[in-house]
Design a protein around this nucleic acid. Sequence first.
DNA 1: CTAGGGTTAG
Length: 994
Amino acid sequence: MFQLQLLLSILTLSFAAQSYSSTSQFSILQSNHHPKSNLLSISVTEFGAAGDGVKYDTIPIQKAIDACSTIVSKHRCPCHVIFPPGKYLTATVFVKSGVVLDIHQKATILGGSKLEDYPKEQSRWYVVLAEDAVDVGIIGGGEINGQGLKFVERFDDKKNVMVSWNHTGACLGDECRPRLVGFISCRNIKVSDVRLIEPAYWCLHVVRSDKTSICDVTIYGNFNSPNNDGIDIEDSNNTVITRCNINTGDDAICPKSSNGPVYNLTATDSWIRTKSSAIKLGSASFYTFKNFLFDNITIVESHRGLALQIRDGGNVSDMIFSNINISTRYYHPSWWGRAEPIYVTTCPRDASSKAGSISNLLFVNITATSENGIFLSGSGGGVLSNLKFLNMNLTYKRWTKFPDGLVDYRPGCQELVKHQPAGFMMEHIDGLVVEDVVMKWSSDESMRWNNPLDFRPSTRQLLYGCLSCNGSLSEALFEMAKQGLQVKFKEYDILLNECITQRAIREGQRVHANMIKTHYQPPVYLRTRLIVFYIKCGLLGDARWVFDEMPQRNVVSWTALISGYSQKGHISQAIHLFLQMLTSGTAPNEFTFATVLTLCTSAIGFQFGRQIHCLLVKSPFESHVYVGSSLLDMYAKAGKVHEARYVFENLPERDVVSCTAIISGYAQQGLFEEALELFCKFQAERMSFNYVTYTSVLTALSGLAAVEQGRQLHAHIIRLELPFYAVLHNSLIDMYSKCGKFTYSRMIFNQMSERTVSSWNAMLVGYSKHGMGKEVVELFKMMREEDKIKPDEITLLAVLSGCSHGGMEDKGVEIFNDLSSGKDRVEVSIEHCGCVVDLLSRSGQVERAFQFIKEMPFEPTAAILGSLLGACWAHLYVDIGEIVARQLLEIEPENAGTYVILSNMYASAGRWEDARRVRELIKARAMVKESGKSWIGPDFIHDTEKHNGMRTYIPHQSLLNMDEQRKKKTLLHCSQGRAQTQLSLMIYSHGNYW
DNA sequence: CTAGGGTTAG
């Protein structure tokens, strides 16, 4: 099989190399640099190219190419366009069939940085581009330079920020940069003996092409530029890459199957250095990769060596990697890769992605020195099959100090997964041959790799098989049915685990049924697994049934069920269950606390949350990170940011979630500067973030209308190549919209693969806030026509307020009528009614507004009546105005403004006497606006407070500050009062924590 | 075995 594949690859190699000369039968080429015959070569200088690096030579170069093209069709032979020594500044030049760019060793084609000179379609932004052409090439020993740094934002490792962002306003982020050299739908391509330098984006891009030979090409891209891939072979077949030297910031050789398969790719005798993956298969690839050979390749100082990251479906098979020398190391964790010499995965990008398959890989004669191990992870739906590792020499040692070395990077599959490093990390593999593999560890103690081979559970099943042959659930179930009574703990455990990971409802039910049928009495552990299984499958009732039937329960069973209720939003049931748990005498653990505290984030739950905190103080879990983030989040959500911060500062350990929780705590309370300050602080401390952090930071930036910083953060987010998260996009939309940058927000909105109601709302609110009534109405119309997402209260509020401020009064009323009845009915609140009154008032329909107030199911607020009173004055509805003013004065008798409007209205209507009377009234009552009073007290109520007639104990500031000894004493003291609520009883009735 | 942070309005 493999021999055959090798043969195929070699055949491809010779075929592609010969194809050019076979078509150029008339070629009698002269020496490249001293052309004697003008017939077969044309110099760009003949068409007026200056080559001074200043003046744009786009037109002369194109004329030379076109002239050459004419020669090609006339004489049916190839024609060379010669670039003599010099610097030729240019925007896109289009290479035609039969034309070869022949660049002198001392000549450079320089990509211009003015994007307006490039073609209209961004898809054609290349410095050199061939489309639908045959027999094309670039040769001659010269250079094509994309001047990437003039376009690109760079990542500054030291400062951990992006710098020098360039864009034109017509485009955003990645799209603002031309690629360097492109061949689209071409055949017989030869790129040989050229230097491709500093691309602004991808460097050499071959798309939907056939028979390409790339040899003796040097590629250099700035190490800190994003997306400057070396060679991208997209939907193209029969490609040979040989004797190339690639030193660039992003993936060096990157086959992509975006719209079609990639067959027969050979890369040999090359040298690669990259801050990303040296060889990467599977960046947004959906189709087949087959018959690839990589031989005699040296990879140095890269962030990942050989990477097969099949995250979007597609089948990969028959690959050989032979004679490869790899060194991989850590760089900043925001770059792809974690120093794995070999990385193979089929983890889908996100829940909606198809799982691809990978089979028949041969790694032979591989030497690697790396800071991390080999990572082989299939996924539930995409097992890796038939992997062979022969004759490998692996050395593991660390020589850099970048963090997060113990975390593998599987975006979209399970997010970041912490694990001990291993020589080979393996998961979901079927068929593995390892022969003559030597692994050595450096003596450095810090590595502590005592697990050369780590088989994750799924792999163990497949390899050692208990019940299951080949890991197939249906076969395992068949076996289970056959064995009946014989099935015991271990088998049930494996089966249930598989059912849980695959969310296989029917299968899990059969396992459960088998237990019942055979009168098997599952131990607490297995019953708990059943609970988890039912919860994961959304069958809460069944989970509860298993729980209720349990003869004994442990903390895990309780916590699992509480969490199940919590996830489904059944807050009170969850709280009730927790109280039952306490009554039963089961001590909560850190998992329970982390779960239960999240139940207290609503206003109703806060009192309860404080009591949990009391309980926590006595437990050993007060300073646990997970518990701490829940706790601080609870305080923050209750508006108590100081307490939240206090909890945060006292956590002995911080992580992304706790840091994000405190940032978003500030942001949600409108303390945007504080949120940003913390974010910057964490950044300086090299804390790692994730999309949730960025979402919260964007909220803060949006609140401050800080577009510039928002844009920088956006650039940074793009660079991270995160999988799609709607919430993150929604925050971006909100940020740009609030700042009035609708080109950006709308572009993000339009490009979203899946929108949520918040996406629409963020857009609508933006338009509304900027008084763009027409846009509001149009977008809302689109939302209704698309009919995918149901509008909610916020949608209605945004639309109504947008219409009222954007001169679309009638439309607003119409939409209100639509949404306050019918199938997509929205719960109407007093705010909505206020908007409607405003709409009617503004359009002069004072009587209708008045009628509406009478009929609406709320008592009108002063603001609503005030807006109507204003309209009465403006449109001189004195009778209604008098009634409204009276109502208003009942609510706010001391509001002088009401009298003033009333008096003015009388005056406008010529009722001078009434006007004077009202003015007298103002004077007589000597109305002065009273200054506000309030009672300011400590946030933490001292000692006890009355609550529902019961006494409950609340932690107060002094308690938080106390040392352990005093804390206990105080609590003990508290516990002497025994008339507490049910919970308080639990807390204090024991001297120690259970 | 069980656990924490997230978008839109006011």
